[in-house]
Design a protein around this nucleic acid. Structure first.
Length: 881
RNA sequence: AGGCACGUAGCUCAGUGGGAGAGCACUACCCUGACACGGUAGGGGUCGUUGGUUCAAACCCAAUCGUGCCUACCA
């Protein structure tokens, strides 16, 4: 080890790159499908190729990495499958923006040219996100990296489409869909974000046809009135029971519309009369279907008014709204305008207001698929953790609507369906057809639409493993062990993977789904570019190191609670990483070649204690990681490293290491210290992989990488509750003396002496055996141990369980101060005692509480009474002075 | 509109039927031979509010207030 490498402060930047390269080059991340060890597999939620690493990725990837590293240490054959998503609309938008800067549009390049341009873009910048994942330490099998548009996955997509089509689960039909005029494509229901908007409710008079008077309808989108094909009222609405006619005249267009009665109409809302526009509203579309109404499109795919709008045709939709309102006002047909807050759908990509639009699209019939997906969870084949999400999953699956899978963009999997220009028959096939299957004509035209990006992601767990081929990888690693994901894509992705996995693999895609929380800013707001509150993970890593960052994420990853991220927190865990570094540095000063762990009986108290505690923390890490309680595992490790290993163990054994007690204790201390540190590094490795590898590499007696080490299984022979109890006596005594020192403002450099009065044999044994350690830890020059009941004068006193500790302060004891200190302590004891006594006097408690609870309370009462009495005597004595 | 979370120390959060906890921040003392990114000690809480169940409630139930999110959109 060189001076600068093992410096007193840990510098992550010096080591992280080195070790990552080392791991990758030595193939430690590689999955072996031929291994006979148990399989453990995870497929990464593929980030968008356009993506830049954000906090969500960082949390998601860190949790997966912790699990993979942990399972590898446990001896499993681990596959962590990486890859990226082609992200249809998002990617197309990025490339289109670049073209726009050059004053071009995709139409200048044509479809093929444009797709080439996208591939070129991907080649150039598509691996940025992958490199960012690597900086987090992600131990993916990068040799197997996949892309949703690559050849194998495209083949899987095609196979799935063709099979579903022939099974009647994919169809093409007229339907009202969400249309984004900017992206120029249909969007699935999930791709629409609803936002509250301050709009207006326009009350418009529709004159009766052939009679006086009018009906007032209320609408937020008056420009769609040209598409009205009826006016609807509720069948039981008294106000409209006896109307003069059964029709109204549509203003401006002067068309006659029937008045229909449909229970969908809300009587309380507006005037209780609803204009029905089947081509531009999903609910109106349904009403239209029920009543056999015509659908009349009045807004085209660019948001421009169509001919049915008459004088308004050719206008942009919002300009038209304004013009219509003005015209209606002029004609006295606008009864009133009411301010109205309502939510309006926006494109999730570009935030344009989406227009419900009638159009011919491709759909997946989801009902049968969803039923199987629900059944699988009900049968426990897939477990959703935490459980709160199960209900959400069921609700969504049970109310699922058909999934619109066609998108009118160029970047994506083009739909493998061809229409014959001669006979109109459609051919859907695995291989591009040369001739129409019906009439044999070669005049075939392929669908220009591509598939929703989520269509290919839905196949991810098996398409990445080589499906539709029957590969060894699939046989070894499907179904995957767990899917780790944020709840924001539970429906987009998880639900659809369940449907597709079950349908095509006849087996669920994952045993567990672990749904983690969202990372927010320190104020609890969702991070977003527009709010300007994003914290860049890479900036954090540069400043604090990957390990500190990962530890922070793990500690805060409590189930069901969002993480509020701030630099301040990460700083705290950098301190932890540094603490670990220094503990190791200290150990290294004393360790040479390690020796075997001595037999327990030969070991002195602190060693037996720390080995026992190590078993507890090892059990905790296993149990908590097995149940996805990352925060508990990380928290227990933090506590153990800092407050047990560093604060007490290392401090306690310093005399041994400095050979104060001779050669054998020194050898023993070295041996135990080495073993504990080694096991601790392995336990910590999943959370803080870099520093543990760095320390491992300089720790004598370790070979190779820590990644190939064995997870320290709990050795019940080392669990030693008696030693834990005795160590507590030592800690209590030392703490009591330190408390006196602190409260009495005695300089730490001042060595004190103390008298321990006790008639308890265990105290005598502990103090006799551990006297020297107590002297060291409490900075004493002498301890007098006695069974005497005589109270020394001029001494501060601490009353602990079964003992009193006196620190003589001849001439310097401030009686007032001491009385105050004891009084404070006395209050605490008295309050506790009162509570417990009251409880024990309660007859119902004695009658109904379990035996052991009563027994425990009695013991406690006895202890407290004794302590109270002893303290009382001290206080009385001091008062007589 | 419906649903789901969450209200515990100044801040961030664990705890989920029998002794109110941690980290940070704060106060005092200390550069003691791993670590000042450190050590020791200390102060600080009616566990949102109100009822109920129970021998016993921060924890279970109900109501209520507050906060956040999700789903759906009645035009």
């Amino acid at each position: 080890m060189t001076e600068n490498r093992f410096d007193k402060g840990y510098d992550p930047l010096l080591v992280e790159n080195k070790w990552y390269t080392f791991w990758e080059e030595n193939h430690f991340f590689d999955a072996d499908e031929c291994s006979d060890r148990p399989a453990y597999s995870i497929v990464i939620p593929p980030p968008n190729v356009t993506g830049v690493l954000h906090m969500g990725h960082a949390l998601n990837v860190t949790l997966q990495d912790i699990l993979c590293r942990y399972r590898r240490l446990k001896g499993d054959a681990v596959l962590w499958m990486p890859g990226t998503d082609h992200a249809g609309i998002a990617t197309q938008n990025v490339v289109e923006r670049q073209l726009a800067e050059k004053g071009m549009s995709r139409h200048d390049l044509g479809r093929e040219g444009f797709i080439e341009a996208v591939w070129a873009w991907r080649k150039e910048s598509g691996s940025a996100i992958i490199n960012q994942l690597k900086r987090l330490g992600a131990c993916c099998d990068w040799r197997r990296e996949r892309f949703t548009m690559d050849e194998g996955l495209s083949k899987a997509v095609r196979q799935v489409f063709v099979r579903l089509y022939h099974e009647g689960l994919i169809y093409k039909g007229d339907y009202i869909i969400n249309w984004c005029h900017r992206c120029h494509t249909a969007l699935s229901d999930l791709e629409v974000d609803h936002e509250e908007i301050d709009g207006f409710l326009y009350h418009i008079r529709y004159p009766f046809a052939g009679a006086d008077g009018h009906l007032v309808v209320a609408t937020t989108r008056p420009e769609t009135m040209f598409g009205d094909t009826a006016v609807a009222v509720h069948p039981e609405d008294e106000r409209y029971r006896n109307l003069p006619t059964a029709a109204v005249v549509l203003p401006l267009a002067e068309r006659v519309l029937p008045i229909i009665r449909d229970a969908y109409v809300g009587m309380e809302f507006g005037t209780g009369a609803l204009k029905v526009t089947p081509a531009h509203d999903p609910n109106d579309f349904e009403i239209g279907r029920r009543h056999g109404l015509e659908s009349l499109k009045v807004i085209d795919d660019d948001g421009i008014m169509l001919p049915p709008a008459g004088a308004f045709s050719g206008m942009e939709r919002f300009a038209c709204r304004k013009a219509v309102v003005e015209e209606l006002t002029r004609r006295g047909l606008l009864e009133k305008i009411q301010p109205y807050k309502h939510s309006v759908g926006h494109c999730y990509r570009c935030k344009t207001v989406v227009e419900p639009n009638l159009s011919k699209q491709w759909f997946v019939r989801t009902k049968p698929l969803a039923e199987a997906a629900v059944a699988a969870v009900e049968a426990g084949k897939t477990r959703i953790v935490p459980e709160v999400w199960v209900k959400n999953y069921y609700d969504w699956m049970n109310n699922i609507r058909d999934w619109c899978i066609s998108r009118q963009i160029w970047w994506g999997h083009q739909i493998p369906a061809w229409t014959c220009e001669d006979c109109g028959k459609m051919t859907v096939a695995m291989d591009d057809p040369k001739a129409c299957s019906a009439c044999g004509s070669s005049r075939l035209v392929q669908e220009s639409d591509v598939l929703d990006t989520w269509f290919s992601s839905a196949l991810w767990p098996f398409s990445t493993m080589g499906w539709p081929e029957d590969t060894p990888l699939l046989r070894k690693f499907y179904p995957t062990s767990v899917l780790v994901t944020g709840f924001d894509i539970l429906f987009f992705w998880v639900a659809r993977m369940m449907m597709m996995g079950i349908h095509f693999m006849e087996e669920v895609p994952f045993r567990d789904v672990y749904v983690h929380a969202l990372v927010r800013d320190e104020a609890g707001k969702k991070m977003s570019k527009s709010k300007g509150n994003v914290i860049d993970p890479l900036t954090i890593i540069d400043q604090y190191g990957t390990d500190a960052f990962r530890m922070t994420l793990a500690v805060f990853a409590a189930q069901g609670r969002d993480i509020k991220m701030s630099e301040k927190r990460v700083e705290g865990y950098r301190h932890f990483v540094n603490k670990l570094w220094n503990a190791a540095r200290f150990a290294m000063m004393h360790l040479e070649t390690p020796s075997d762990l001595p037999q327990t009986e030969k070991l002195d108290l602190p060693h037996r204690w720390i080995l026992s505690r190590l078993q507890a923390v090892s059990r905790s890490v296993s149990e908590n990681l097995d149940t996805y309680q990352f925060n508990n595992a990380a928290g227990d490790l933090y506590q153990f490293v800092w407050h047990e290993f560093c604060d007490w163990y290392i401090e306690a054994i310093k005399p041994d290491l400095y050979e104060k007690y001779g050669d054998e204790p020194r050898q023993f201390a070295r041996a135990v210290l080495w073993h504990v540190l080694r096991d601790l590094l392995i336990l910590l490795h999943p959370f803080v992989p870099f520093i543990t590898e760095e320390i491992w590499s300089v720790l004598p007696g370790t070979r190779g990488s820590i990644m190939n080490a064995c997870f320290p299984e709990v050795d019940s022979g080392r669990v030693d509750l008696d030693s834990e109890r005795r160590m507590k006596v030592l800690i209590d005594i030392v703490s009591a003396i330190r408390n006196i020192r602190g409260e009495m403002n005695l300089q730490p450099s001042l060595t004190l002496s103390c008298r321990i009065h006790s008639i308890d044999e265990r105290i005598h044994a502990a103090v006799t055996e551990q006297g020297d350690r107590i002297r060291n830890l409490a900075r004493l020059d002498g301890i007098v141990l006695t069974a005497s009941d005589e109270k020394p004068k001029h001494a501060a006193v601490a009353v602990i369980e079964n003992a009193e500790i006196y620190v003589p302060m001849e001439g310097v004891l401030d009686i007032g101060q001491e009385l105050q200190r004891l009084g404070k302590e006395m209050n605490k004891v008295q309050t506790e005692l009162t509570n417990i006594s009251r409880k024990l006097m309660n007859e119902d408690f004695i009658r109904k509480a379990p035996e052991e609870v009563i027994e425990k309370a009695r013991e406690k009462q006895t202890l407290l009474e004794e302590k109270r009495n002893r303290m009382q005597r001290h206080i009385e004595k001091l008062q007589t002075l």
